[in-house]
Amino acid sequence: MNDLLDVILGAFLNVVIEVQQYTFHVIRSFANLFRGPRYLGDTLVQMDVIGVGSLLIICLTGFFTGAVLAMQSAKSLESFGAVGLTGQLVAVSLVRELGPVLSALMVAGRNASGMASEIGSMVVSDQILAMRALGTDPSKKLSTPRLVATVTMLPVLTAIADFIGIFGGYIVSRFLLHISSALYWSTVYHNLSYNDLLEGLLKPFIFGAIIATVGCHCGFRTYGGTQGVGRSTTQAVVAASILIITVDAVITRIVLVFLR
């Protein structure tokens, strides 16, 4: 019985320590924005890796999500004789919810894992120690550029995913459901409010911060050689994905209470 209690207490303590270390990492990464040196070149490289590099998967995800959403919603709307509102449903669902969340999950899968494995490999091969020995703060050099790049690129990628998704919905609506182009685009245009756009573009900023901080934090706490790098990579994707979905629920509730 005592052994079980010890195990539970030990696990709880580990979670508390992990949360504490992650919080310190987040604070340090943001605080670095106000302290030199600033690594503009590294930030631009990361913007290219995260932004341009994720463009294809974001476009594909957006397009097929929009297309499937149009097919599924048309089937439900048909029973109310409201197939013409497909554009509205696709647009609002994508902009408020699916665009931000799916883009974030895609970028988390691609980049949080990349950050964790890259930094993790540097940790296990003493490159992080060497960096510190050479007078560089790894947090400033590695974390903050990735944070800035993800926070700036994810909203852009989300906006692109939203547009491509609505376009995917249009292709399905026009050629499978035979809804006129004018009807589709007018329902899209007239039913998207500024609050929808605000919610849809607020989320990616927060999701971007989650992806970068979780990815880098998991990388920095890597131990145990190449196996440890693999473990950190998996943990980064899982933790970032769960945090994104959890925070999405919280933001959605806040927005529904305060902006509706």
């Binding site: 490999s121 540097m122 091969s125 003493d126 490159q127 120690l129 060497a130 960096m131 020995a133």
Partner: peptide
Amino acid sequence: VVFQESALFD
């Protein structure tokens, strides 16, 4: 510092 495994940035 010269590290045991060189620790060059790969």
